[in-house]
């Protein structure tokens, strides 16, 4: 049974020069697995993730034939129902900790805010849960981090704080938007293994949005490759390196390799028919 079913999703922004379609008819299904969405910036991968949570502000509009999460049609749900789902059942880790954490609130207060408001926990109990969540994302000195402001943390720490915050309510579906692109390889591996553990042990569904093809190939089960708001190719992740679509091949070829030649890297050829429809 699939956890999330999206059919013909469109996100449109009306601008002065007419409507701009950021997502143009995306359909996919997600079970309790790791689904990767890759593409360049502007390909609509973040908008797809946000549209599932209906987090697109006017003038942006979401249209879809069906968007079913665990038996509930999200496209018809009231704003009140959406509020009950957001965070508790579907959570999203945003891209940049610098802009997504409240800069004038201590990390501890941000982590416990949901627990105290939503779950009506007492201060001591909420703090205990928050500390456990920070430990779960491998933060070495959780007591110090609880009392710190976001600007006192490095990018990697901030990213892990956001993941901890999203995981406290134990969601069924996590949408992670470039959760590791601010991190370096060694920390990246740690964060991925945390996410991996959650998918395995708790049967959480994960939508992993990234522009790093090699990372997605290694980490996800299935991959959607997006270009200009459309899915151009859907693949089993371990076959990503053997992708056939010219766009996917182009993205792979323009990456430098250790021990590769020093010749200029091939650019992305956008002249094919696939690029213009």
């Amino acid at each position: 049974m699939s956890l999330l079913e999206v059919e013909n999703l469109r996100v449109t922004f009306s601008t002065e020069t007419g409507p701009v379609e950021a997502v143009r008819g995306v359909s996919f299904q997600l079970g309790r697995e790791r689904l990767g969405i890759v593409g360049e910036s502007g390909s609509g991968k973040t908008m797809t993730g946000r549209a599932v949570l209906r987090l697109i502000r006017p003038p942006g509009k979401i249209q879809t034939d069906r968007m079913i999460f665990d038996g509930q049609d999200l496209s018809k749900a009231s704003e009140r129902d959406m509020r009950a789902l957001r965070g508790r059942r579907i959570a999203m880790v945003m891209q940049d900790p610098k802009y997504s954490l409240n800069p004038v609130m201590r990390v501890g207060d941000q982590l416990t805010e949901g627990l105290r408001q939503r779950d009506r926990l007492g201060a001591a109990e909420a703090r205990k849960k928050a500390l456990a969540a920070l430990e779960a994302v491998q933060i070495r000195d959780p007591e110090r981090v609880m009392d710190a402001y976001p600007h006192e943390l490095s990018g990697g720490m901030g990213q892990r704080v956001m993941i901890a915050m999203m995981l406290i309510p134990e969601p069924d579906l996590l949408i992670a938007d470039e959760p590791t692109s601010a991190l370096d390889v060694t920390v990246q591996a740690e964060v991925l293994s945390i996410l991996d553990g959650l998918v395995r042990e708790r049967g959480m569904g994960l939508i992993f949005i990234s522009h790093d093809l090699r990372l997605v190939a290694r980490f996800c089960d299935r991959v959607l490759v997006m270009y200009k708001g459309r899915v151009v190719e859907e693949l089993v992740a371990r076959d990503l390196m053997a992708a056939q679509h010219p766009y996917t091949r182009g993205l792979l070829n323009c990456l430098p390799r250790i021990g590769g030649s020093r010749a200029p890297l091939p650019g992305l050829d956008r002249t094919g028919t696939w690029a213009n429809d």
Partner: peptide
Amino acid sequence: LDASVQAEVLN
């Protein structure tokens, strides 16, 4: 930068 843009800047 994106992979394709990274390639352009490296070149």
